[in-house]
């Protein structure tokens, strides 16, 4: 999964002109606090989320937390 992300991801940070690195990132929703590995800019820390993640797993977790 990690390797796949690194290979297929061509995005770079436009401000810092840096390649993205995979790092643990804190995400929060309602009562939920998680740490997940996501791609981010090593300098400005901006985190990259693609549509598959936003509309797939993230949406699923959001709905799950809303129904808790």
């Amino acid at each position: 999964m990690k390797d796949e992300l690194n290979i297929t991801n061509k995005w770079i940070c436009d401000k810092c002109q840096e390649s993205l690195v995979l790092e643990k990132v804190k995400v929060r929703y309602l009562e939920g606090n998680f740490e997940v590995e996501l791609l981010k800019c090593p300098t400005c820390k901006m985190v990259y989320i693609n549509d598959d993640l936003a509309l797939g797993k993230m949406l699923e977790v959001e709905k799950g937390l809303e129904d808790k």
């Binding site: 990132v25 804190k26 995400v27 929060r28 985190v47 549509d51 936003a54 949406l59 959001e62």
Partner: peptide
């Protein structure tokens, strides 16, 4: 080209 959204908050630090 594309638009999507999420409600989850990402902590950028």
């Amino acid at each position: 080209k594309d638009v999507y959204s999420h409600r989850m908050q990402i902590v950028e630090e």
